[in-house]
Write a protein that binds this DNA or RNA. Structure first.
Lengths: 350, 350
DNA sequence: GTGAAAGCGCTAACAT
DNA sequence: ATGTTAGCGCTTTCAC
């Protein structure tokens, strides 16, 4: 409980024979300072090891800034809902530091709605933006505008190589597929594997599952070159057909006992699995959606690989507030979150 | 970048007809306020949705408080070293809020050194204390003194049922043993298992491995009632003997192919395993020490269960700063951290 | 270009 | 028990 005794602007003003106002101008690179004064102030700042007091600064400024989270609409039970907790935690944290956090959402299947959302964000003149880059080209255009306005942005989930982002928080996608394969095969001879995939037309959307699939296939061909990999396509918009498709495929291929899925919808195969518990399928999926966890608990799914989606957003928000308030860029630009392996036995504590 | 228009203490003073000083007193539960005034102020605070401005508060206080972390000396390559990163992150965070974080260490095998450390901590008049309760009775005495001085404390790693702690951050110990068994047996018939244990005399130390062992044994007897569990004792202070002891045991029990260890020292059996790669032991241990991760990478150990030790400390520090600055008690008193399953394939991203 | 001074919202010491 | 007031260190007019 000791008093602090730090160097202040006043000290610098006295030492340089200038006034607080001028020192402040120098500190913030504001115009209207002679070269002479500028140099003098800088010298004394260095000499005295002056550190500005952010509290005093923030108090005097009394402006409220906003960080925008630009992401697909959060639908109940679907992937992006996992972001919510992290966003809320981030908002709570940021609010205490005088920064607001607001969501702007769009339809992840509708590029026009994305463009609209981008406009909306720019109009808000945010102090920073957090976003998963869903539409690659559109996103590049958008972040370029952000750059022009000196608005930092942080990627979550996936990243683009735009080279002007403040930070990235996500899972190592390729490796996650590799890990998935290792868990699925359990390092024991694998003969035939089915990858269940989603049928959807993509309009230039970045597809994280592609990299993941690569990692998966690489593991399999490295470890079980003779293993055959099947692809089964289902359509989530026609749930009533899923079981039929699966029935058909698996009765035609009774040797297949390993199943993997690279998006967050492994729960879609749960009802099929339920009907064929006797076949002892070994199943691995991704992401801790409630429906997926239920399938895990009931033993239909062996393992889930989760990626702390909430934490990604929370970290992203923290990174921006840190940058805005303390002027600190994150220690690492690319931050790979852990891949969490969930089984029946640790899922309750996740 | 809009101006803030928030409710201030002054507003409350006006509304209540009292002065800023009194409002401040109420806000901080300082003595010298009549019940009437107190109630009036509280009512208006609620009504107006007043939120204190931490910047103004911190600026005006200009005192530096300290949170003490009381823990065993961090030895290179040993368990407590894992706490370091979290402590450092916590310190960095807390410093920005004007709170310092300092470590006080003791010898975890020497109760006298613990007592000494406790005295030292009390002499520092800390604003809060974070500690793993290594010596049960001594710790209870210590936290009682803290309570008398209104110093909040947070448990990490293990907790005591002292009922006066602010929060606890740790792993669910029993479940971790259960999980360990499930990974080790991989749900396949288990015949004989060896638990490698550490020989040391305990002076009333709380033993987290005991609960963990219980969970392990419960899983085994639930799933493989006929499975035999062996105990092998090694002594880390005599590393030269470890290999001999293991050689002796495993040649006498050649049927044993599953090995588990409940403390952080699975790396001690690595050299033995290296010599007998042909026997394909299936080995599961705890904690992500560098030496353990090396054993994992080289395939000697199949899996490690890790507990985010750093995060436990970081969370603990955050909880205390939150309490001190924002007056907020944590949402949950007992916080169980995830149990992370590490394999060769996800360890690089941990 | 530069200085003076009035706050920002809160705390704490001193009055009453 | 309550009010008054002088700061905390910085920003931001406004004047010169």
């Amino acid at each position: 409980m000791e008093k602090t005794s730090k160097i202040t602007i006043k000290d610098i003003a006295l030492q340089t024979g200038l006034s607080c106002g001028t020192v402040d101008r120098v500190l913030h690179n504001r115009p209207g300072v002679s070269k002479k004064s500028y140099a003098k102030v800088m010298k004394v700042i260095k000499a005295l090891g002056y550190e500005p007091n952010i509290y005093a600064s923030l108090l005097a400024q009394r402006t409220v800034r906003v960080i925008v989270i630009l992401l697909p609409a959060l639908k109940k039970g679907e992937f992006w809902e996992l972001a919510e907790s992290g966003i809320n935690r981030g908002r709570e944290f940021a609010l205490k530091l005088g920064i607001d956090v607001q969501k702007v959402v769009y339809d992840e299947y509708d590029i026009a709605s994305f463009r609209e959302a981008c406009e909306k964000v720019l109009a808000m003149k945010p102090a920073g933006v957090v976003l998963p880059p869903m539409f690659k080209n559109e996103t590049l255009l958008f972040v370029d505008k952000l750059r022009q306005n000196n608005i930092p942005h942080v990627y979550v989930d996936t990243k683009l190589e735009s080279n002007d982002y403040l930070a990235y928080y996500g899972m190592p996608i390729y490796q996650s597929g590799y890990l998935c394969a290792s868990i699925l095969t359990d390092n024991k001879p694998a003969k035939e594997v089915a990858i269940v995939r989603i049928q959807r037309d993509k309009h230039g959307q970045s597809d994280p599952t592609m990299n993941r699939r690569e990692g998966f296939i690489d593991y399999i061909s490295e470890h079980f070159p003779e293993c055959r990999i099947h692809n089964v396509f289902i359509n989530p918009t026609q749930p009533e057909n899923i079981d039929n498709i699966l029935e058909e495929f698996f009765s035609a291929n009774p040797q297949v006992d390993l199943i993997a899925m690279f998006n967050s919808r492994i729960h879609l195969v749960a009802s099929f699995l339920e009907k064929h518990r006797d076949r002892n399928y070994h199943v691995v999926g991704f992401d801790n959606l409630d429906a997926n966890k239920a399938a895990l608990r009931s033993g239909l799914v062996s393992a889930l690989i989760a990626q702390r989606t909430g934490d990604q957003f929370y970290s992203a928000i923290s990174a921006i507030t840190d940058f805005l308030i303390f002027g600190r860029t994150p220690a690492n630009r690319d931050n790979f979150m852990p891949m969490d392996i969930l089984t029946r036995f640790n899922v309750e504590y996740y």
